[in-house]
Structure formats: structure tokens, C-alpha cells
Design a protein around this nucleic acid. Structure first.
Lengths: 198, 198
DNA sequence: CGGAATCTTGAAAGTGTTCAAATCAAGTGG
DNA sequence: CCACTTGATTTGAACACTTTCAAGATTCCG
């Protein structure tokens, strides 16, 4: 038998079924309902999550009280407030289920024990973080490079499954503008057959 | 004797002087002059850099031909186009010396050999990437959270050394606005004793 | 000193936001 | 299954923030 986590690990490093089974013991499964928080800004959290099923988002509350979404996680992505998890401090970000979600959780002590027992996992997580870091840099690039309408088009072409699974309000926040403006963009783009205006 | 690289590694993982000396063999030192490129957008690059001395910036050319700076590296930071380095593809970003810089370089094959010979370095780089990823997420947070004037103040308070070492033009680009607007902000802020207007 | 790049200034034009109200969609309890 | 309540999306007008462009002042470096 092969779990999603096992499969994901095996994509990056060679691993035996026995190792995978032992690694799984460091995690515990959990279910979250739509709109439920896995992590809440300002609170202590010491868990890292692997998404087995569902969609999560990370967000925070801006100066003027809006929810600003900064990333999504779908199946086979890792998610947490890394700064809080790593340093054991209160969370800067909240993590919430957008759909009912099924995740694997690992506490900080278990994470340390896991890395000690299976040093090969250092390599796996090195790769995971390297990839996440790269993605985050590209996110910054897109924010600056594209006009808002192009950014919207880019994202909905690149991740159509994500766009379909989330409310527009949250998409607008992720893209960096208001829901009202997203409405206007959609209207404008519809007129132009899905091409940016410029 | 203890090099900056050795010291930085030792901050994260236990390491003997002998190991450190062997690790150093996988790197070669290089000097770059102000404005010289370590990596050029569109070209192949297969090196990762550790900054011993100087300031680097990463940037790309936007749709409308401007240079958009997306991050800096000062002493003890790692820098490269990670996506290009990792996948062996052409670079999306350029990396340039803002001051004369002294760096340690490692090629992709040497990196792989290093990780094979010293698996403990997987842990070190896992930590480095984890930290870089966290920083990148905070960068995105600040972009969305702060008004432009607050973002400017935040950055110049958080990294005064960096601000002093780079031209305003590049700072403006990093913060996400035009040099002209930065001029206005500085004028406005000067009138208000360094506090945001809002 | 001289040339080139950087920084400042101001006016005009865009881009995106805010606010308020109407419409639409979804989930809940009876 | 319907009626109700709540939340999400759309619309439009007024406004605010930021860019663009062009020109002048300043600084840097050889």
C-alpha cells in the first residue's frame, strides 16, 4: 500500500516501504471543515501540515482589516507558518481550509525526532523548501512584472483547478486587488475574448 | 583558522575544522566589480554563490523594459537563480554586484558531490532554504500589508546598512515604485519628521 | 574639469480603490 | 421543499495614489 505522502517522498528520494511506514508514524491525520482554521494568527502553533485532500489558504489581516491571502496549498503540498513552526513563536499567518480538508500533521518535537531517525528526510525537506522558495520568488516576480489583468490571466491559466475551487473574493485578495476590481476585469476580459486590454 | 563560510555553517550544524576544510574544497573564490553580473538573465548558469564581502542584487527586466530588483544579498547570504541552478535551465533573473564583491562559488556538479560526501550539509541547506523561504513569504506580506510610504520606512529601519549601500533608484525598484515617487516620499516624510502621513 | 548617471520637481494621465446599493447564490431551519 | 438569512458578486461614481514624461539640479567617477 502506498499513501500520498509516501508517493511524494519517493518522488524526491529513494525510500523503502518499511522506511515510509515508519516515517508515517510520526504524523497523525486530521480533518478540517470548510472555513475552519488549522492555524490562527497570534496563537501558538507547532504543526506542519501535508495536504492529502482539499484546499488550504494562508492569509493575514492587513492594517485596514482585510484578509490578505498569500498562498494556497492543494493536494501534496506542505503548509504551515514556517517562522512560527520553526522558532516556536506565535503565528503571523492564519491557515484555513477553503474546502473540507484531510491533512497529515506533525508536531515540532516529532519533526525533530523524524529527522534524527531518518536523516535522509533532511534531503527531502531541503528539496521541498528549495522548491517552495523558488515558487515564492516567482510569485514576487509576477507581482511586479505583470499588470493586474495579465496577472489574473496568468494565474487562471496556470492553475485553473485552483481558480475553480476558490471564491473570487479570495482570488482577488491573492492577486492583490479588490473583489470589485476583479469584477471589472472579468467584464473587460470577456469583451475582449480573454485577452488583456493593453 | 575560520572562514566566514565555516562560521556560518557552524551556526547551524556541528562541524569539525577538518570537515569544514574539506567542504571548502568544493568551492572556488571569485571577485566581481561593481555593476558586474554574476548571472545574466537568459544565459546558462550553474553556480551558487556565498557572499563573503559586498552587496549583490537579483533583478529581472519587466515587460516595459525596467530593471526590477527583487532581492539583495549581503555578507553571509546565499544567492543564485535557484530555479536555473537546480534545473539546469537558462536564468530568469540576473545577479549583479552593487559593490565590489568577494564570493565563494560552487557548481552544480560540485554541489551534488558535496552533498554526497557530507550528508550533514543537507541539513544545513535545508535550514538555509527554510529561512530564505520564510523571508520571502514575509516579503510578500510586506508588499501587501504596508502602504508604500510605510514599506519604505519599514525597510530603511530594518536594514539601514543595506539602504546606505545601494542607490535610491535600486531601492525604489525593490520597494515597487518609481524613483520619482521615492523622491516625493522622502520629501513628504522629511516634513513629517520621518512618520508616515496617513 | 567634463560627461554620464542619478536624483528632484511638477503637471497630466492612468490605474485601482472606496463606498453604497442592487443583484445573485448558497446554506439553514422549519 | 420553501422561505429566510447571510455571504458573494456586480455596478457605478467619486476619489486617491502612483506613474509617466519632460526638464532642471546634483552627484559621481575618470
Amino acid at each position: 500500500m502506498s499513501t500520498p505522502l509516501h508517493q511524494h517522498i519517493a518522488k524526491h528520494i529513494p525510500i523503502t516501504p518499511e522506511e515510509a511506514a515508519d516515517i508515517a508514524l510520526y504524523f497523525h491525520p486530521a480533518d478540517y471543515k470548510k472555513k475552519e482554521n488549522l492555524i490562527t494568527e497570534g496563537q501558538y502553533n507547532h504543526q506542519l501540515f501535508f495536504v492529502v485532500k482539499g484546499v488550504l489558504r494562508m492569509f493575514f489581516i492587513t492594517d485596514n482589516g482585510n484578509e490578505q491571502t498569500i498562498q494556497f496549498a492543494i493536494e501534496n503540498w506542505w503548509m504551515t507558518d514556517h517562522d512560527a513552526f520553526h522558532k516556536g513563536i506565535t503565528a503571523t499567518f492564519s491557515v484555513q481550509a477553503i474546502e473540507n480538508a484531510e491533512v497529515l500533521c506533525i508536531t515540532k518535537p516529532n519533526m525533530e525526532a523524524l529527522l534524527k531517525a531518518h536523516p535522509i528526510m533532511e534531503r527531502y525537506f531541503r528539496m521541498v523548501y528549495e522548491r517552495a522558495y523558488t515558487a515564492s520568488l516567482f510569485r514576487v516576480k509576477y507581482i511586479f512584472d505583470y499588470s493586474k489583468d495579465r496577472f489574473y490571466l496568468h494565474f487562471s491559466n496556470a492553475y485553473p483547478e485552483v481558480v475553480q475551487r476558490i471564491p473570487q473574493k479570495i482570488l482577488a485578495s491573492f492577486l492583490g486587488f479588490t473583489p470589485e476590481y476583479l469584477s471589472e476585469l472579468r467584464k473587460k476580459l470577456a469583451k475582449n475574448g480573454g485577452h488583456p486590454i493593453s
